[in-house]
């Protein structure tokens, strides 16, 4: 039952607050309710009123009314603290799945100062101290990610309890732009690329097979022949020589090389490989079903590959209620645009 109500409420919220990278907080999308402290305060006022009545004490009446009026005034102030505040998504960040992806937002205060509000997604919140009227402040909001792909925070909650914490006003921002979450790198097993690369196949391997050796720490499953025992005798470190020769084609990271493995896992392997190659500055290309990135070696190339891995097979998220095209030119008339939106959807 409560789940039904909650989902109804959420869809109502989603209708009311369309996805947009720019969100101006107005009465339409601001909500205000007393906090539990506020409810207790109400109870206290009731007790005070009872005391006043029972002892026929005018001054207790007076103080009760004063505090009651302060409560109403606080309602006004709390609401005004957020209203007119404009949030712009400056940049949706990038990162690996499982990490917190940083969204950069700009909060611009309207006619009034905005004081002590927090931005939060799920359990992470960022307090913002003070945005003077007419000025703006940049906020970095970490958003937890679980999976690779596009990360579009469902709702960024903007909340304030200023001035007394007796009331909370809040709203949500539902950005359109999505962050790109790279697959979480997982150390890849040795496989051979199936991509044909004529010039490299035959002579990349030296007869001894160890001139392109890459040293890495031992891990479970490595064959004992590969351990550099000499080195172990010298330094006590179990080091394994990873001959490039064994990895198949050095220039191509191939999705199809991990036959039989889950797609997501393959992407994680590839992600690890891309990072490793990127670090070593090697030339490499990426072969994904439906997408091939030619070998190259640069940081932009690495990022490009990671992005490709991140969004492979993913649809760019679109919201049915996305802000109409062109509104960014005069975002200020969203209200009238909103009226039109109801007609067009």
């Amino acid at each position: 039952m409560s789940r039904l109500i909650r989902s109804r409420f959420q869809s109502w919220i989603n209708r009311r607050i369309p996805r947009s990278d720019v969100q101006v907080l107005t009465q339409r999308n601001l909500f205000i309710l007393p906090t539990a402290a506020g409810v207790m305060f109400g109870l206290l006022l009731l007790i005070m009123l009872l005391t006043g009545i029972n002892y026929q004490n005018s001054l207790i009446y007076l103080v009760t009314f004063l505090l009651g009026a302060v409560f109403v005034g606080a309602m006004h102030q709390t609401h005004r603290n957020l209203s007119g505040l404009e949030f712009t998504l400056v940049q949706a960040g990038e990162g690996f799945a499982g990490d917190n992806i940083v969204f950069r937002l700009r909060a611009a205060a309207g006619k009034d100062d905005a004081i002590a509000f927090t931005l939060s997604v799920d359990d992470l919140s960022v307090p913002v101290g003070h945005v003077p009227a007419g000025q703006s402040v940049d906020v970095a909001l970490p958003v937890p990610s679980a999976f690779r792909g596009y990360l579009q925070p469902d709702r960024i909650r903007i909340e304030t309890r200023f001035p007394f914490g007796l009331l909370k006003a809040w709203s949500w921002m539902r950005p359109v732009s999505a962050a790109v979450v790279f697959p979480r790198p997982i150390v890849a097993p040795d496989v051979v690329s199936a991509v044909e690369d004529g010039e490299q196949t035959s002579n990349s391997r030296s007869p001894e097979g160890n001139d392109h050796a890459e040293l890495r720490p031992w891990r479970e499953g490595d064959m004992s022949q590969r351990i550099m025992w000499k080195r172990f005798a010298r330094s006590g470190q179990m080091v394994v020589a990873d001959w490039e020769a064994d990895k198949g084609n050095p220039h191509w990271l191939d999705f199809n090389a991990f036959a039989g493995t889950d797609h997501e896992l393959r992407l994680s392997y590839l992600s690890w490989l891309v990072i490793e190659r990127g670090k070593s500055g090697a030339r490499f290309g990426l072969n994904l079903p439906g997408q091939v990135i030619e070998p190259e070696s640069s940081t932009t190339h690495t990022t490009r590959c990671l992005r490709a891995l991140a969004v492979w097979g993913e649809e760019k998220p679109r919201d049915a209620f996305a802000a109409p095209h062109g509104t960014r030119h005069y975002t200020t008339i969203k209200k009238s645009a909103g009226a039109a939106r109801g007609v067009h959807s």
């Binding site: 009465q27 006004h76 007119g84 309207g110 006619k111 008339i333």
Partner: peptide, 20 residues
């Protein structure tokens, strides 16, 4: 009061009103 303030707020200048 708050409604008025928002209506006359910085967000809505004369242009957007005329346009609306």
């Amino acid at each position: 009061l708050s409604a008025l303030q928002i209506r006359r707020g910085a967000g809505r200048d004369g242009y957007s009103r005329a346009l609306a």
